[in-house]
Simulated scan of single mutants.
Amino acid sequence: MTSDRIERARASLLGLALGDALGSQFFVPANRAAFETRELPPAPWQWTDDTEMACSVLLVLARHGTIDQDALAAGFAHRHDFDRGYGPSTNRLLRLVREGGDWRELAREPFDGQGSWGNGAAMRVAPLGAWYADDLGEAARQAELSASVTHPHPEAVAGAIAVAVATAIAASTPERLAPGVFLDRVLEHVPATQVRQGILEARKLLTIRDPGSAAAVLGNGRQVASHDTVPYTLWAAARHLDDYENAFWTTSAAGGDVDTTCAIVGGIVATRTDLPPRWLEACEPLPSWVATSWAGDGPGTPQ
């Protein structure tokens, strides 16, 4: 476990949590106007299930050096906080795992044995991509392992792979990445699915500046499906890889599942750009139990 690997994953997790926490404020009616004018809503900003699950992913990597699926399922179930906004099917799955159920059987119950195609696997995977930034193929393989614990459907797996590889590319490429080149490199690793088709569409829409117009074609997570979420997030990330604030505001402007879309984009972009200090101060600290996944103190260290 190298310090570079830890720092990359840590940066991604912090960016994910910040995007998640600020994005979640979109659902507070009094804050909607602030989002339209790019004004920050009142602090504190509380993160959701996106961050809680991403913390478990990073902790498993730190402890095992790989995605140990049994350990990941146990961690998800043990740390499951119902009030963090989990979807109904994930709430049920994690409760049954805590009661002794087999995640391999439970995860495949939806969609006639294929499992959920929701965006839950994609929303939490960016730190894994940062962890494996030196090996895109391994990032894709480990993303599939992490997704299958709760979302084994091919679409959900493809979404997780796409986000993990996108984060790995962002983290491992210090020079400026042209948006089209970035998406082309991601596509090399994404299997043939609706998610892949959506990313291909996103590639064609890179000249469009309006987030609403892009989301009208790509989706904005409103369906809480992988193929309705990941293509838009990669479009937004590709256009603002080196600017966290603009990446956030662009992503949130489309509405939809804002905490999740902003968590995904935040986790990608944070691997190559600083986070706004004032935003970090307003964000809920990460849970203390994930602090064991890295050493030392610094900005954003969990309290």
Rank of each mutant, 00 (worst) to 15 (best):
Q223D: 12
A247I: 11
A263G: 14
E99G: 14
D112K: 12
F27L: 03
G296M: 10
R5A: 12
P88N: 12
A73D: 10
A214G: 06
D4T: 13
T273F: 08
T37R: 15
L13V: 02
G298Q: 09
A156S: 13
R222F: 03
A147C: 13
P299E: 14
G256A: 11
I208F: 03
V28R: 13
Q223L: 14
R278L: 12
A215Y: 11
A54F: 10
G87A: 04
I161N: 03
D184F: 00
A166N: 06
A254P: 01
E155Q: 15
V28G: 01
R32W: 09
I161H: 07
A71P: 02
A143Q: 02
T260Q: 10
A133T: 00
W235H: 15
I208M: 09
A17D: 04
R104K: 14
A158S: 14
Q25I: 01
V186I: 15
G129C: 08
N91V: 09
S3M: 12
R92H: 04
G300M: 14
P127Y: 09
L206A: 03
I208D: 14
L14K: 11
D49V: 09
A126D: 12
T233I: 06
C55E: 02
T48H: 02
Q194I: 05
V265C: 11
A139V: 04
G87M: 06
R8P: 00
